[in-house]
Structures are given as C-alpha cells and as structure tokens.
C-alpha cells in the first residue's frame, strides 16, 4: 500500500474505533476536569495570581491528560493481537507511526479545545483577542508531546508495568516542551507582543521537527518482531 494511504488508514482506524467506543476522549476529558478542579481547590487565587500561575496549570493538566490518551493508543492494539498484525504487516513502519501520531495528536487537540473554555470559566481569564496564537501554541506543544509519546507508548505497551513506565520515560524528555509551552502561553495570556516569546515558538518547532524525524526512524526498531 502506498505510504500516505497507510498513514490515512491507520489514523482513520483509530478515529472510527474512538467514535464507536468513546473511551479515550471521554476518559481524558474527565481526568482533566478533575485535575482542573483539584488545582482550583489547591490554590485559592485572585485574578492577578491566576494570570501568573494559569499557564503552568494548563500545561500540567494537558500533559497528564495526554499521557492517558497516549497510553491507551497502543494498549488498545493488544486486543485480538492487533499489535502483532501491525508488526508483521508489510506496510512501512514509519507510515504506521505517522498514522498513530496523527490520531493521538487529534485526540489531544480535541480534548484541549474542549478543556480550554473550562479554564477560562474557572479561572476567569480574558483571552478573546489572543485565541489564534494560543491555538498555535497548543498545536505545536501537543505535537511535541505526542511525537515522543507515541514512540514510548509503542515501546511501553510491550513491557511489564507499562502504566508506570510511560510517564517516567516521557516526562523528563518533554521538559523543553513544557518550559516552552508554559512560557509562550503565559506570554500570550498576558497580552505581550509576540516578539517577546517568539523564541519559545521556534524552540517548539525545532523540537517537533527533530523528534518527528527521530521517532519516525526509531519506530522501526520498536516494532521489529
């Protein structure tokens, strides 16, 4: 099958099974909702304090939520030996990786777009004019989390203690994404000019490119039988 068709079919397969079962997105969404509530109880914030802290809270919630989605992405393949069929299929492993990555990215972005209004309501934010820029930041940082996350999800699904190992492996590597995402989000929420935090967007773009290429290459070794 041609390369791009494989990508499309793998992503399509994940989307269809998600539409039918609604497991991943609903569990991600309710988990994130609980994280937001816990944060809003833990810090009793006025609007000034909220503006300082909210970027960090948003990204902690998004990263933990993302880990749930990423973990489910490959553990769903364990049923009916789907993982083995992916491994022995003649399709290019890189294309399977990109398909999985596209599906994970889409799930995380959907959850983030649903969740962000919750932050706006609970923490009383003022975001209307910065919305396109925030969406760009979300897209870049979420791609960064899901490139490495998809690779490690495929890796940890085949070992013991997989629920523990995915965050242990992913979060240290995602340190640059978290720093850049938090700094850029804070800048955007403050209404700073883009030139002040454009560096962070560039860093996110570099991280995305480097790790998409690297994971694309490394996925071959992970899926080897």
């Amino acid at each position: 099958m041609p390369f791009f068709n494989v990508i499309r079919w793998v992503a399509w397969k994940d989307l269809i099974s998600e539409v039918r079962s609604r497991e991943t997105i609903s569990s991600m969404f309710f988990f994130a909702l609980i994280v937001i509530l816990v944060f809003s109880f833990s810090f009793s914030m006025d609007q000034a304090a909220a503006r300082e802290l909210i970027a960090g809270i948003i990204w902690v919630a998004f990263a933990f939520t993302g880990i749930i989605g990423l973990g489910k992405s490959f553990s769903a393949e364990l049923q009916n030996d789907c993982l083995e069929h992916l491994q022995i299929s003649p399709a290019s492993k890189g294309a399977i990786y990109l398909g999985k990555l596209a599906a994970n990215l889409l799930f995380m972005l959907i959850v983030e777009v649903i969740l962000f209004p919750m932050f706006v309501i609970f923490f009383n934010l003022d975001v209307v004019e910065e919305l396109p820029l925030l969406l760009l930041i979300f897209a870049l940082a979420t791609l960064g989390l899901s490139t490495v996350g998809t690779l490690f999800s495929a890796m940890t699904v085949q070992i013991r203690a997989r629920e523990v190992m995915l965050p242990i492996l992913l979060l240290p590597l995602a340190v640059p994404v978290m720093i850049a995402a938090v700094e850029a989000t804070r800048g955007a929420l403050h209404g700073d000019p883009v030139s002040l935090y454009g560096n962070w967007l560039r860093l996110l773009a570099v991280f995305d490119i480097v790790f998409t290429v690297l994971s694309f290459w490394a996925f071959e070794w992970i899926m080897d039988t």
Binding site: P176, V206, L214
Partner: peptide, 17 residues
C-alpha cells in the same frame, strides 16, 4: 532507542533552560 532519543534531547533541554 531510549538512550539515543534521550541523548538528542539533552542539548534541547540545555538551551531551553
């Protein structure tokens, strides 16, 4: 694979911090 991915990550961590 983990060692290689981690090694590539370290310079990016360094510059970001």
């Amino acid at each position: 694979v983990l060692a290689i991915v981690g090694f590539v990550d370290l310079p990016i961590v360094h510059f970001s911090v």
